[in-house]
Design a protein around this nucleic acid. Structure first.
Lengths: 97, 97
DNA sequence: GACATATATGAACGTCCTTTCATATTTAAC
DNA sequence: GTTAAATATGAAAGGACGTTCATATATGTC
């Protein structure tokens, strides 16, 4: 550390942190962290409106944090990789110590 | 993981991520990650206005991410602990891989 | 084709936040 | 006490963002 990364990197860091820093999106990420879930499953588990969940999933997808799989009328989402789990873990530990 | 934390924890996580998700504040955190620095030093290194740096330091301080020490007319800031370094590392790795 | 279910989308509203500008406060030096 | 340097603060502007509501699209079933 101790050296400030270049703006390009900082911009990406800012974006990632920004996407993660939302109550609803955090819930969605946790919801699908164990196994893939359909949108309606996520809606039930998160307790937000279908519209809101759909909007926020779009944000997560644009940031490449989740990937999707279509099956009939349903769409299943899961985490794109394990980096997000690490990120959430570090943040979780920080606030619960 | 796989279980959604309670709202209280999620709120704190959201707050921490929010504070971290700003270009100027990221620069400030990196600036003082190696050693404590005065505000004017930070201003030079970060390349933002004195007012903006001061405002953002206030945000960081309110979130308990930095601590301060006064010496004459100058105020020196340093990271409150190493959790932030971990957080920045995880995010950095994610965006630079 | 008509209907139901699952998901996505667009517009609109209110609110929060970053940044700038001007100014206040504090401390030291003379 | 006046001046200068360092830092903090308040107001204001502008844009970004989360949420809701209404509606569209897509797939499956009859």
């Amino acid at each position: 550390m101790s050296q400030i990364p270049e703006n390009k990197v900082l911009d990406k860091m800012e974006s990632l942190l920004n996407v993660a820093s939302d109550f609803t999106r955090l819930k969605i990420l946790y919801s699908i962290s164990g196994e893939e879930k359909s949108v309606s499953d996520i809606v039930k588990e998160v307790g937000a409106s279908q519209s809101l969940v759909s909007h926020q999933i779009k944000v997560l997808k644009k940031a490449n944090l989740v990937i999707s799989r279509k099956e009939g009328t349903r769409v299943f989402y899961q985490l794109a990789d394990d980096h997000i789990v690490q990120l959430l873990s570090v943040v979780y530990d920080h606030v619960t110590e």
